[in-house]
């Protein structure tokens, strides 16, 4: 059964192939210098993505300098104002400044994206390493489980976790991370399986190096590149999922200035105050776009077969 779930976001249909190619291709020149050179030589879009991402991260971090409004401060005299110099993104029905809500919301969303992917990487690597390294029935049982978990759309798995944890920003972040574990487990396992075949691993086994040491020193480094590519795109996916869950009331709760919450705030005012929904949604789209552009660039570097010609 080829029940595949799309690796969260983006045009990452080539991830399987990417992984395969990564295992055969070995950089001849020292890794990071080569990567850096290719990243800069790469098409304008990737450079644009990096710049956009830096701009977003920078302005989100510098939020207190870029706005003098508290994202939670209400002001009844400035309700539902359209975009102006004073309020670039307008104000919502409680008179809160949307520019500062979107800025501060970015902190939450970006951080949540990183943490969720972090959870997925740690969990997925652990399972993938164990399955790939021990093989046999351990591998069989774990991989069948992964197959089954991937046989349902990711958001449903996330919703099961939220169901038991209860809706909140932190829980949504954890739930997204947990629900993405299978994807990473599968990638890591694949890389481990081919790394295992290498002579140096066999040699280490024969000499009697303990299993955990072989995994950490000899096998894990092979896994880094494919995971890095998927994880980058995964951060974008996690941000989208979080916004979606918050929109449904299953993630961050109002009045938290989370992007999905703000879009949802604007929903009731769609007819009269288009700016609430529009700008918060644009923030999500541009953040995810920047991350996807960088992810695409990374994939091009690590997988020459898919490089845009």
């Amino acid at each position: 059964m080829t029940v595949a779930r799309e690796p969260q976001e983006s045009a990452s249909a080539g991830v399987g192939r990417a992984t395969a190619a990564l295992l055969t291709a070995r950089p001849s020149t020292p890794g990071w210098r080569r990567t850096l050179r290719q990243l800069t030589r790469n098409s304008n879009t990737v450079v644009g993505g990096i710049l956009l991402l830096l701009l977003i991260i920078g302005s989100v971090l510098a939020a207190p300098l870029l706005t003098r409004y508290d994202p939670l401060a209400t002001n009844t005299r400035a309700r539902l104002q359209g975009p102006s110099l004073e309020h670039p993104f307008g104000t919502d029905d409680l008179g809160r400044d949307l520019w500062s809500r979107v800025l501060y919301g970015g902190r939450l969303s970006l951080r949540a994206g990183f943490i969720a992917v972090g959870i997925a990487i740690v969990g997925g690597s652990l399972i993938g390493l164990i399955a790939g390294f021990y093989g046999r029935w351990v591998d069989m049982v774990l991989m069948r489980l992964i197959d089954v978990l991937m046989a349902m759309p990711g958001i449903l798995l996330t919703m099961i976790f939220i169901f038991s944890l209860g809706p909140s920003l932190t829980n949504a972040m954890i739930a997204i991370g947990l629900a993405s574990i299978p994807e990473y487990a599968r990638i890591v396992r694949g890389s481990v399986l081919s790394a295992r075949e290498q002579t140096y691993v066999e040699a280490a086994l024969v000499v009697g190096v303990p299993a955990w040491r072989i995994m950490g020193r000899h096998i894990l480094p092979n896994v880094v590149a494919p995971v890095l590519v998927v994880a980058t795109i995964g951060i974008g996916g996690a941000i989208l999922s979080l916004a979606g869950l918050s929109f449904l009331g299953l993630g961050a709760q109002p009045p938290t200035p989370e992007w999905g919450v703000i879009v949802s705030d604007g929903r009731a005012r769609l007819r009269t105050a288009w700016w609430i929904t529009t700008f918060s949604g644009l923030a999500i789209a541009f953040a995810v776009l920047a991350i996807n552009l960088v992810g695409d660039g990374l994939r091009d570097i690590f997988d020459p077969r898919l490089r845009s010609r």
Binding site: E9, S10, A11, T45, G236, L240, A243, G244, F247, G260, V263, G266, R267, L270, R271, W274, T277, T278, S280, G281, I284, A285, F286, V288, L289, I291, N292, L293, D296
Partner: peptide
């Protein structure tokens, strides 16, 4: 297309409604 992939579907839906 990369922008399409990056847009949250619920936001697109709301814009369409608007």
């Amino acid at each position: 297309s990369l922008f399409f992939i990056s847009m949250p579907s619920f936001w697109v839906g709301l814009l369409f409604i608007y």
